[in-house]
């Protein structure tokens, strides 16, 4: 995919336990990410996309069991101590969360929260930190940055708060940004502004981005490659254009077809029958088999693994959809 991936995730598994039962939240997730590259993780709620992101940064190990390997520029993150991780978090790898309302401290001014990051991760002096904070707010498009440093989060709107979050995340010039549904709580017009901003900054700072979202439109407009997740596993991954335009896994196809685009108005929409399985009672074979129209007897008993089907393109299905001519070309 890229010559020197900065992040390599291999066979990442995260297991939670509840009442003595093991919950396989994430299973065998593998992907690699190069500089300036945007990787999407897409799936429905409960498919394990957010847990994957948290496992990368070592947040999930506080409440679950993480195995597999996460290599960040040659270093293994999963075996790193909390102390070592703290040096990487915020400085090299930053994360932004879905809720800009709850991830800022309501009792501290925006300026304090911004300079706090700089104090922890850079050796800038007091004056320089303030200048850098103003520069960052300016950079993310907050007008009158200098005067807003002294304001509290409640004085900012939702979109502006998410900009502040991005400014804090990017203050120490990280090389990787993990974004967990950064625009889900925002309106479409603001969403367009924020996504544009993330892409522009990723490009300028040649920063890698892992973007978690449930919105296929957001994936299409921002990502270079995408992994589609279902019940904790990646069912299909590859170049965003190929995956969205000629899906090979029946689930990806079902997702694409449920979005009302280019269908006659007021007609019945295609819908994937049934609902996603509970992690407590995953089917023995392919987790998607009970909802799948092309499922055969093999799908009920054995679990398909992720196989290469074309260069840089993988799918986990015994009966993948036929490749169209466009795909073969």
């Amino acid at each position: 995919m890229t010559d020197h991936p900065i992040l390599e995730v291999e066979n990442l598994c995260t297991t939670f336990s509840r009442g003595g039962t093991a919950l396989p939240a994430v299973r065998d997730v593998s992907f690699a990410l190069g500089k300036g590259h945007v990787q999407g993780l897409v799936g429905e709620s409960g498919s394990g996309k957010s847990v994957t992101l948290r496992s990368i940064l070592g947040l999930a190990r506080h409440y679950g069991e993480v195995s597999g390997s996460v290599r960040w520029q040659g270093q293994e993150l999963t075996s790193m101590s909390e102390r070592q991780l703290r040096k990487i978090r915020g400085r090299e790898i930053a994360m932004i969360f879905q809720e800009p309302m709850t991830s800022l401290n309501p009792l501290l001014t925006v300026g304090t929260q911004l300079t706090e990051t700089l104090k922890a991760h850079t050796d800038l002096g007091r004056r320089a930190r303030r200048d850098r904070a103003i520069e960052m707010l300016d950079h993310v498009g907050i007008p009158a940055a200098a005067s807003r440093l002294g304001e509290y989060p409640h004085q900012f709107s939702g979109g502006m708060r998410q900009r502040v979050m991005i400014a804090i995340a990017l203050a120490a010039s990280p090389k990787l940004l993990l974004a967990d549904e950064p625009t889900t709580a925002l309106d479409v017009t603001i969403q367009a502004q924020i996504l544009d901003l993330i892409l522009k900054l990723a490009d300028e700072m040649s920063m890698g981005v892992v973007l978690v979202t449930h919105d296929l439109g957001v994936v299409a407009q921002t990502c270079d490659t995408v992994s589609v997740m279902y019940a904790g596993r990646v069912v299909e991954q590859g170049d965003v254009r190929q995956v969205l335009q000629t899906p090979r896994h029946p689930y990806t196809e079902g997702l694409m077809r449920s979005v009302p685009q280019d269908v006659p108005p007021r007609t019945q929409l295609y819908s994937v029958p049934g609902t996603p399985p509970s992690l407590f009672s995953l089917p023995e074979g392919c987790a998607f088999a009970p909802r799948c129209q092309s499922a055969g007897p093999a799908c009920q008993t054995a679990r398909p693994t992720l196989q290469d089907i074309a260069s840089g393109r993988q799918t986990a299905c015994f009966n993948p959809l036929p490749a169209t001519q466009e795909d073969a070309a």
Binding site: A192, Q193, Q261
Partner: peptide
């Protein structure tokens, strides 16, 4: 135009609105 299109080839056609509500 702000609603993201499902077609990756449509990148960057959105009319950007300045500011917020």
């Amino acid at each position: 135009s702000a609603a993201p299109s499902l077609d990756p080839d449509d990148k960057g056609v959105a009319i950007q609105l300045e500011g917020e509500l």
